[in-house]
């Protein structure tokens, strides 16, 4: 690993000031950053440790749940407010990584994690995300884990997070601080598609810091489910995952939220499916129709065609469980 300077941040403003210097990165849990630094994928000159800043709290206020950027994934997943108000988030977090990693990883760090595309990680191979204009190794290479939605000529990588899929479904807002003060961004607008700039995963400016997230209260708690399909039963990235949150009363779906993971460069929200579910009674034929619609526009590569069928079936299964048609 390349040598670097290490400093502890004294305040949020101190972090923002430090980030103005090129080659400076924030470190919190370090579970992805240290990994990438060991492999030479990233080589910052300076790390700003923010772990002791007071940004860990989980609080419920005026119709929303606020979670600080430094709240650990394990703490959030076990938090009683989260479990009661937003069980989908708890389920998604528990589906991710391992207990040791969840004890280190933070909310903000989870959002900022990079793709696990093998071509991004291997510094001897081309990757437009790691080295702009070097080409995409995955497009014509081994692309079994890769995206089927929203890809570009330059990149077909997927975002690896489970937590982010749940947060995208739950209408979360991201609170960001920078030189000009604080700003809020819809979670679904935080990450971006690769387009012509796959080196950028999201819309956070280089001198900005995530302060936390806010999830508005909802009526989804009784009908939420996170289904993750992976190569082994635990501790693996998703081939496909589905986050479902339904508001059902008197046997009718009043409102629905759906997002998929493992299929795109960002959590893939299914807006049309949500509209099509509203006002209907849960049924297998309805869910099959929803899943067919959700796969429109999917584009497979040489090794990931199976994902289209898998994602479709996962949507059906997740809806069946969330609506109570079948047990988990």
């Amino acid at each position: 690993m390349k040598q670097f300077e290490y400093v502890k941040a004294g305040s949020t403003q101190g972090v923002i000031n430090a980030l103005a210097q090129p080659g400076t990165k924030i470190i919190a849990g370090g579970t992805n950053l240290v990994d990438l630094m060991k492999r030479g994928v990233t080589a910052p000159d300076k790390l700003v440790d923010i772990t002791h800043l007071p940004l860990k709290d989980i609080t419920a206020t005026s119709g929303r749940l606020h979670i600080g950027t430094l709240a650990l994934n394990s703490i959030v997943s076990e938090n009683s407010l989260v479990q009661k108000k937003q069980p989908l988030l708890s389920m998604a977090l528990k589906a991710g990584a391992s207990p040791q990693l969840r004890n280190m990883a933070t909310v903000g760090g989870n959002m900022m994690q990079r793709t696990r595309c093998g071509y991004f990680y291997d510094t001897t191979l081309p990757c437009n995300k790691r080295q702009p204009e070097s080409g995409c190794g995955a497009k014509e290479g081994y692309n079994r884990m890769h995206a089927i939605f929203g890809t570009s000529e330059k990149c077909i990588a997927v975002h690896p997070s489970d937590m982010c899929v749940a947060l995208a479904a739950l209408d979360t807002t991201v609170i960001i601080a920078g030189k000009k003060g604080e700003r809020k961004l819809a979670f679904t607008d935080f990450h971006k598609l690769p387009g012509d700039t796959p080196e950028l995963d999201n819309h956070l400016a280089k001198d900005e810091i995530i302060l936390g997230i806010e999830i508005p209260d909802n009526n989804f708690a009784d009908h939420s489910y996170y289904l993750k399909i992976r190569d082994r039963q635990s501790y693996a990235f998703a081939l496909v995952s589905v986050a479902v949150a339904l508001d059902i009363s008197n046997g009718v779906i009043r409102s629905a939220r759906l997002a998929m993971g493992g299929v795109a460069h960002k959590p893939w929200r299914l807006y049309d499916a949500e509209k099509a579910l509203a006002g209907k009674q849960p049924s297998v034929p309805l869910f099959e129709q929803i899943a067919r619609g959700a796969m429109q526009g999917a584009k497979a590569y040489q090794h990931n065609e199976f994902k289209i069928n898998l994602a479709s079936n996962a949507v059906i299964q997740a809806l069946k469980v969330a609506s109570g048609l079948v047990p988990a």
Binding site: Y6, G30, D35, T51, P99, Q100, N103, M104
Partner: peptide, 13 residues
Amino acid sequence: GQRVLSCLTLGVM
């Protein structure tokens, strides 16, 4: 008291 991975933990932290 919490289990973590020491290979991904910087000593200074």
